[in-house]
Design a protein around this nucleic acid. Sequence first.
DNA 1: TGGCTTTGTCAACGAGTGTTGGCCTACAGT
DNA 2: ACTGTAGGCCAACACTCGTTGACAAAGCCA
Lengths: 198, 198
Amino acid sequence: MIRSKSRQSATTRAAILNAARERFAASGYERATIRAIAADAGIDPAMVMRYYGSKEQLFAAAAAQVDLRLPDLAAVPPEEVGIRLARHFLDRWEHDEAMPVLLRAGATHEAAAQRMHKIFATQIVPAVGAVCPDPAEAPARAALITSQVLGAALCRYVLHLPPFVSMTAGEVTAWLGPVLQHYLSAADPQVRLPADAR
Amino acid sequence: MIRSKSRQSATTRAAILNAARERFAASGYERATIRAIAADAGIDPAMVMRYYGSKEQLFAAAAAQVDLRLPDLAAVPPEEVGIRLARHFLDRWEHDEAMPVLLRAGATHEAAAQRMHKIFATQIVPAVGAVCPDPAEAPARAALITSQVLGAALCRYVLHLPPFVSMTAGEVTAWLGPVLQHYLSAADPQVRLPADAR
DNA sequence: TGGCTTTGTCAACGAGTGTTGGCCTACAGT
DNA sequence: ACTGTAGGCCAACACTCGTTGACAAAGCCA
């Protein structure tokens, strides 16, 4: 367990990053303090500044490289795309805490919201576009999928809404699958005329 | 415009509450400072404490009495319940900022999350139960509806996800309606056996 | 007019924050 | 053995926060 003192920096950097991710995920950006993160990592707060420069940059490092690892949906049988997507997200979240980080922080921190925009544009939209009937509709369909997926994550991992946390991952997947399928491939619904909009 | 000095307290109290709601909605709980709220209301920070006791109590007052005013779904033709529900939520949010307050604050503040649990249990679950095939399923179905509805609000009003904000309220309603309908009345989906869960 | 309550301001406290610079220590290379 | 350097800690700064108590002004009531 006892290591030589030099060439230890990589280990410490990683420890800080892990502690930061946990704190950001558990408390959001503002309540996650440098001091608490440093305490979790077992080092002095000054080290955090030395290695990451500022809290903002530490957050950027903690929330960087969020890779959803979305599968190639074009290779999936068309009628299974929805359930496959739902299962993928659930799987991801039950084992990775990168997404709660962005969810909690994105609600109040502008930089986090911008990062979610980027993830949406570079990962979700292309994946959806691969199986979309009309590629021009991909952004809108991807946004709808994102809304359902983030909403479920919000209820389950952030708000801890009782009926949602007591469901198994399989149940959630079974419910979300058809909905994602609908957003992916259903015909664009006609908006009623303003006459009966009220 | 100039009023007598006494009997002014009700006006000031209301001004504080309005400013508080705006700040909590725009910045979340932690970034909304008493000083900023007081400045918006045009008075001294000490007045906020005098009238509301503490920041926590001010937040409670600002987030209190969130009445979704859900319609009696039993009186709606069964096949229109989904679209009716979607339209109601959209209508509510485009004109009221009480919900963004809870969304932003609920992500990081425990008291806000608890308040959302209460709103869910006392308003959404009963409304859903009125049209649910099996009342025992009402909490789960209500949770799914809530997840989609909160997810849409998150993308549209908090994260400002571009494709979502550029949709009209009518388009969002048309997309969400069938999904809410599905959560309300579709048969409980069978969860596949563990054999093909991977 | 004189006192009492209400409405409000001002200055300050104590705690907690991100951040900085100086100092100590122990290893690596010579 | 000596020295340079990198890893790490400590103390402190400057600032903001929620919160408090003392004090001033203005109305109401007698």
